[in-house]
């Protein structure tokens, strides 16, 4: 165990953990965050995605020790129920989910990609979303919500 400082959603949290612990467990258990989720623990589904220094990573396969000095943003860090981030709002407006378990990884993956590639084509968006899973078959709506956000970033 070792104490380290973790900067999450703009606040610094001292945590006392085994440095080899995957970041996901620290976020969801030590810090009680609800955005990142355990789906596979193998880097295959995207449920555990978080933003680190503006990039998306899979927190289930990322040791917390590599996070020293990094800025971590989770789904909670984007917006709130009262003031959702535009991409969160797009998902709410399109009712783009069923169980919603996949939505964390989908929103963060799409947001980071579109913010960096505001002119992305549909094919490029699909390519960017080719590593995240939804098992409820909400894909049609999810793609609609992503495109809605894409229109906003373009504008």
């Amino acid at each position: 165990m070792a104490v380290m400082n973790l900067k999450v959603n703009g606040r610094t949290h001292p945590v006392d953990v085994d440095p080899a612990t995957p970041l996901l467990y620290v976020l969801s258990d030590d810090l009680g965050l609800r955005g990142p989720k355990f789906g596979c623990g193998l880097g295959q589904c995207g449920s555990c995605a978080v933003m680190v220094n503006g990039r998306v990573i899979r927190s289930c396969v990322t040791a917390v020790r590599s996070m020293a000095g990094s800025e971590i943003t989770t789904l909670e860090g984007l917006g709130t129920i009262e003031k959702p981030h535009p991409i969160q709002k797009a998902f709410i407006d399109e009712q783009a989910m069923q169980c919603g378990f996949c939505i964390n990884g989908i929103i963060l993956t799409a947001k980071v990609f579109l913010d960096r590639n505001p002119k992305a084509s549909d094919a490029e968006i699909k390519q960017a979303m080719s590593g995240v899973l939804c098992r409820c078959g909400a894909n049609a709506r999810i793609i609609r919500a992503i495109k809605r956000y894409a229109e906003e970033v373009k504008a």
Partner: peptide
């Protein structure tokens, strides 16, 4: 539930 899910506030059994 959707606003809470989309903003990472929703309490699943996992939470």
């Amino acid at each position: 539930e959707i606003p809470a899910i989309a903003t990472g506030q929703f309490e699943y059994v996992h939470n």
